[in-house]
Design a protein around this nucleic acid. Structure first.
Lengths: 338, 338
DNA sequence: TTGAAAGCGCTAACAA
DNA sequence: TTGTTAGCGCTTTCAA
């Protein structure tokens, strides 16, 4: 059925060791026999068996991307960046969706170990110092900080800075009463963005009003409800910084329903720059995370440690967030015109 | 380094064949020794080597999903459906983005063969009867029809019916001058949707006006430009059926910019029901493709043929499209109110 | 430059 | 119920 190295050895009248050498371009094969072998191999439609090779070489040239949910608009670009980079470097990539479930994550990690992937990119389902990561054998790099775990390299984004930039933009655009509507309180990135928010307020001598800081979930509904509560209680802000774009979209929806004029009387900024944000009908001002780059860099870093052999030190790569001004905030220059 | 079956055999004082049997739950091992073996294995932190196993068993329990671009909003749900189903059935899944490039597709297919995946789900980059698919060894199921290739099973959607339903909805909603703004002319699904459109017009005795049928690309800009051309030439329709949602979004944008009142004076319907379509700010009426189901069913079908051993006949599974009425078309009932 | 042979970790006859 | 052994397809010493 499957043509093997032996079949072609027989046909070419050489030992199969020689065939292996020829096929792998190893030195020490007469040019003549090498050509013969290559020709025979081609004629017979030989397909190398990566499984057999993996068994002896002890690496598989396959990586894995373990993320919560490819359906979440934050992840496709990361996946694409990762896959493009992997492909370029000669690796295939397993896609695993944990569905934000630590048990499923554990299970995948186990399977991936059995399948002997060379390395893993992991965006943990939760950042609560999960113990199942601790004694992991395979090189792994994280897409999200896990507090208290220093063992793994990671690609991160400077959330504090992102939060700062976002809030600064709102302030400079002239908004006065700026709320922070965040996601899960226990999420480190949420906490960091909030910290950036506070930092910016402080810097501009704006008192921090705790009634304007709301935690919820990283969901559109959560953004909607949070703003609604603020409005209903007569505590309407004139701008909100959403913990991520999905939240900001919910805020936007609520603001629109309440007839708030955007961006004139009400400003909204998000975080992530998911594809939705740039739709003509949305035009959400936001803080861009370089998602494609994150995936790409993660793979590149991973492969570098694979090649390094000896235990390389853990490295943390911090990427810079970027302000994308669109239509849900007043433009700074416009403010200056006044 | 890696603990193997032999290590645990030595420790447990049995032959490694027995260990293999015990580990795999095969019959013919005394309960007592089995327990011992399992215990020793656990204590030693044994991790089965799927590569070695794959070599002898000749299957790897891994599948591949080869699609044009995970970043295209049409695919994440398919991928998720596929991955969920695969995971449930005990398979891992490679993700491959061809970037709509047939050469890259070819290359991936080759790699996947070398890695000995058990089966492949392929959404071809192009549907132009690509010859490189013909003599493929691995079971494969297609997510898109390729004209003239009957060798592969497929999961398809009834595009003609979808086009029919879409157009019928427009007609019943009272729109009179209905344009079809499609994607690539050579695309079979585009052609089929157009056919459905014509069928509906015929059924309602509306003459087909070729000046109202436009082919372009499956891009937002294409939808925008196509409508603009119609408007600029004084041939403005009062409704358009977009070849897919992305096109429809472009149409929507253009219509909005031209101050057309939607849905009162101008109706828009798309095709696919990508996530964007249901955003509060968009609310695009469309024809839903059951994307998650497509991925799921594709995997299930694939695994079924893998299990079947003997060459099963090729089967084509046709899924039904579904009308999703949102805010870019008049509601039928509203029309009846008049 | 080539061949013989061991071995990667495992499963599955076949014997005992 | 258990052990012996061949072999999956390949790479890589070690000899020739």
């Amino acid at each position: 059925m499957q043509v093997t190295i032996k079949d072609i050895a027989k046909k070419a009248g050489v030992s199969y060791a020689t065939v292996s050498r020829a096929l792998n371009g190893r030195s020490g094969v007469k040019e003549e026999t090498k050509e013969l072998i290559l020709e025979v191999a081609k004629k017979m439609g030989y397909q190398p068996n990566a499984i057999a090779r993996g068994l002896v070489l002890k690496h598989t040239h396959t990586l894995a991307l373990v993320i919560p949910d490819i359906t979440n608009p934050f992840f496709p670009e990361i996946a694409r960046g990762a896959e493009d980079a992997a492909s370029l470097l000669g690796y295939s990539i397993f896609l695993c969706n944990t569905n934000w479930d630590t048990d499923k994550e554990k299970l995948y990690l186990k399977t991936l170990q059995e399948k002997r992937v060379d390395g893993i990119i992991l965006h943990p389902a939760h950042n609560d110092g999960e113990t199942h990561l601790y004694d992991f054998q395979i090189p792994m790099i994280l897409l999200n900080k896990i507090p208290g775990i220093a063992e793994y390299s990671s690609i991160e984004i400077d959330n504090v800075r992102g939060g700062f930039i976002a809030t600064k933009h709102l302030i400079e655009a002239g908004y006065k009463k700026i709320a922070f509507i965040g996601g899960t309180e226990s999420s480190p990135s949420n906490a960091e963005r909030k910290e950036g928010y506070k930092l910016a307020l402080k810097k501009y001598n704006i008192p921090i009003d705790e009634s304007l800081i709301i935690n919820g979930k990283f969901k559109s509904e959560s953004g909607y409800e949070s703003l609604k509560k603020l409005i209903d209680s007569g505590n309407t802000p004139d701008a909100v910084f959403g913990g991520n774009d999905v939240i900001a979209l919910g805020v936007l929806h609520c603001a629109q329903e309440h007839g708030l004029r955007i961006p004139e009387d009400f400003g909204i900024i998000g975080f992530d720059d998911i594809p939705y944000a740039s739709l003509p009908q949305i035009q959400l001002t936001t803080i861009e995370q370089p998602k494609y780059q994150m995936g790409k860099r993660a793979i590149e870093l991973l492969v570098r440690v694979l090649k390094a052999e000896e235990d390389s030190e853990v490295i943390r790569m911090i990427l810079e967030p970027k302000l994308k001004i669109r239509k849900t905030t007043r433009n700074v220059s416009r403010k200056l015109d006044k």
